[in-house]
Simulated scan of single mutants.
Amino acid sequence: MESASAASGHTVANGITRWTLADLFSTYRYWALFGSIFILEMGMQGLTSVLPWIMRDHGNSYQSIGLFSISNSSGWAIGAFLAFVAAPRRGRPALVFPIIVLMILTIVILVVPNLWSQPIYLCLYGMAQGSVRGVIVLAAAIFLFAGRPDKIDFGCALTLLSSTMLTGIFGATGLSLLTEADPSGIYVILCFLAFLVAALALLLPLRQPSFEDEPRQRHNPLTPRERSPVTVALILLLAPLLVVAISIALYLLQEQAADAGAATIDALLFSIAAFVIAIAGLIYLAWWIYRIHGELAGAEKSQRLLTPLAALLIAILVPLGLPILLMTLGDLLNDRGRKRRGTKLVSIVWLAIWTLLMPPIAIALIQNAANKSYQADQAAA
């Protein structure tokens, strides 16, 4: 049986406190895992993308490149062993030790570049790299599960961590530019070493990576305020539409200027206008995210809500942060609607569709549901 804990606001099952998604997002350890995976994926995918050229310059055959890839995949088995056996007991050492080993091997290759041509060293390096990727991803899932979040919260938290793997393309692009500047690969290896140091710096402060303890209490309420969902949607839709329209006009002006053989001041003015409108739209989105989290907390305290500032930063800076926050708010508002009115306040299906296709409409749906929730609170009072 599950019940709401009056003292903490957490969902409690059989006397065990469950972590909510907002609880997870409000900890350094979650963002340390997020940041380290983000950094490591950028570095490793970037290095892997340019490594064939570096190895070819050192006289390696295509078979050697294949050997490295096989060793890299085999390293996942070592990472899985560390994640499932060592991480639950010794969380921080299980995360840090493979990175340190990879750092040592990377420093050695800087000192002795000819080791790229040695198959045994390629195997060791590939296995070390694979073990780092395997242990941190699998251990992160184990750490999250230790907090006993419900299925949706666990899925959202893990999805956000997994989204960092998509950022590897940026590392590949950056390191490929370094390879063009220095075909020997020294700059690339130095950059990769810097990625490892940065990831290690994020993980070292973690005393307890697992979420087995009690979540921190937090409550930053703001006075609830109803606002027009149509107005919210129009403001958030108008900004990108104006930017697109101005960009088209700017393109046409540049074409005319090119035909005339001279630049115009209008092009500069249009560029500034597009930039200002884009910033204004982003500021309004940040303001709305800040207000809605504080206002819902003001209506009723809940550990499922982030603090306004944390929500703002996640929505603006984190990949997939805004969709996850909107879906979480929709689920929270539906729970409040069922408790007060016996009905849902927003369709989760339509909310998910609009979140993917047109976020301003999804934001308007959340605002409309919040208005209904405030009205129900006033009626109950």
Rank of each mutant, 00 (worst) to 15 (best):
S271P: 03
G168S: 10
Y121E: 03
L204G: 02
A381M: 10
W53N: 13
A22H: 07
Q129N: 13
R148N: 12
V232M: 07
V197A: 09
L333Y: 10
L250S: 13
E180K: 15
L345P: 00
V132W: 11
Q45N: 10
L200Y: 04
F211T: 11
S71M: 05
S131E: 03
L160C: 12
A7S: 04
W19F: 14
R338Q: 07
L329M: 08
N114L: 14
A13L: 10
L253S: 15
L322R: 12
A80F: 14
T27C: 13
Q256T: 11
A139R: 03
L178I: 14
Y121I: 11
L144A: 06
L252G: 06
L160D: 00
Q256N: 11
L238N: 01
F145I: 13
L166Y: 07
A199S: 15
I292G: 02
F270H: 06
I272R: 10
S73M: 15
W19T: 03
G130Q: 00
I283M: 08
S247T: 14
N14Q: 04
I142E: 07
L305I: 08
S71L: 01
D331Q: 14
P323N: 06
N368L: 04
H58N: 09
G134W: 00
I136A: 07
L196D: 09
L305G: 15
A140P: 00
G75S: 02
S373I: 00
F143C: 05
R216Y: 00
A201E: 09
L285A: 05
T167M: 15
G59Q: 03
T11E: 12
I248M: 15
A262S: 13
V112D: 11
S131M: 12
S176D: 14
G337D: 08
D335K: 11
Q303S: 13
L236P: 01
N220Y: 14
R218G: 00
S61Y: 09
Q256F: 11
L178P: 13
E212V: 13
L234H: 04
L102S: 07
Y28K: 14
C191L: 01
F195P: 01
I361T: 06
W354I: 00
L242D: 08
S373T: 09
A141D: 10
W288K: 04
L296Q: 13
P205Y: 11
F81N: 01
K339F: 09
P209T: 02
V318D: 05
I78S: 00
V12R: 15
Y187E: 12
P360L: 02
G281E: 05
I16A: 15
F195N: 12
S26T: 11
M127Y: 03
S117P: 01
A83T: 06
V135G: 02
T27N: 13
